[in-house]
Design a protein around this nucleic acid. Structure first.
Lengths: 177, 177
DNA sequence: ATTTGCCTACCTAATGATAGATAGATTCCT
DNA sequence: AGGAATCTATCTATCATTAGGTAGGCAAAT
């Protein structure tokens, strides 16, 4: 029973975008990878803007959901920051590729509108989660500082081919949360 | 007296790469912008790998040079961090585009080898500068944390169309340096 | 005389996207 | 129940455009 075509397409597109950027994946790449013709990919996602938007929306939902509760009273804000860091570290280890929105975010004004809208929506959701996560703490950390630290560490880890920046970001943020 | 062609090409290529990514600029774009034909751009930079490498090398040199001394005894490490932050903030304000190496770094394994080599070299230089800058301080900050914080803040600022993340990163890092 | 810088003209490959056809289900009407 | 209409998912074939890159020529500067 092959996985749903839509998901197959989204899976491959996401992986490729994370590795090569939005312009680094084509309808033909995707088609070849899953064994269909490019016209069939267009059938499922009429334009690249649609495809980018859906890849991003799905990624964002999955990411935020995986973070879990931001207000569980049995947890400290450090616990939550550690979980956030783990999300990034796992993503890095998995296929040495960055957070989707770090790749897309750096060229956000170059993306089709439908796609960039979803990137911005992701950041809003993430800001909300971090804000709520830090609400009970009297830390000087702000949501932007936290998110920036991890995203930057991720790109740095990728560029230098070394997890260290992510580990250091984790230690830094967790100790201050 | 028109500016040296080489520089004209590098100027435009750099601006476009920073806005649109490496795949987001073409030889024809560049040629049109400076009023020549694409073959002439190839005359100056035979391949895109060469072009990317030179854009990056020039950017790196300029950036590191602009940071100034990392060991002037009349300065504190906070002073130096503030200067680093200013570099990023100015780059952002100038044409709302990111640090070149944040854009290239996120897809570093997709770039031609000559180009990615320069990206990695940039990060090594920057790590050295920050390490030296913090040497006299007993801060818990590491070079990776500092660089990651600013790069991440930059992408976040761009994505959310708001300087705030950069300002917050500045405050955060300077206060801990 | 040679080099420098640019041109015209072209090539091959790839891109996003569309048109039209087809086989197989499914749904709907009588 | 049986036939008609429709839907789904794919195909082949093709389009216009753009991509990086090259060959050969021409004029001015050295």
């Amino acid at each position: 029973m092959p996985k749903d075509r839509n998901e197959q397409i989204l899976d491959f597109a996401e992986r490729e975008i994370r590795k090569n950027g939005f312009d680094g994946v084509s309808f033909r790449d995707i088609a070849d990878a899953i064994g269909v013709k490019s016209a069939s990919v267009h059938y499922h996602f009429p334009t690249k803007a649609h495809l980018g938007a859906e890849v991003t929306r799905r990624y964002a939902n999955r990411f935020i959901e995986a973070l879990g509760s931001a207000s569980d009273p049995s947890e400290t804000s450090s616990d939550r920051m550690r979980r956030l860091a783990d999300g990034y570290i796992e993503a890095y280890k998995q296929d040495t590729s960055t957070c989707l929105c770090a790749v897309l975010g750096s060229v956000v004004n170059h993306l089709p509108d439908e796609t960039s809208k979803e990137v911005r929506a992701y950041y809003v959701q993430l800001q909300d989660w971090v804000r709520a996560s830090l609400a009970q703490s009297d830390t000087t950390l702000t949501p932007n500082v936290v998110i920036g630290a991890f995203q930057g560490a991720m790109v740095l880890a990728l560029s230098t081919n070394d997890v260290a920046p992510l580990i250091e970001a984790n230690n830094h943020i967790v100790s201050l949360a």
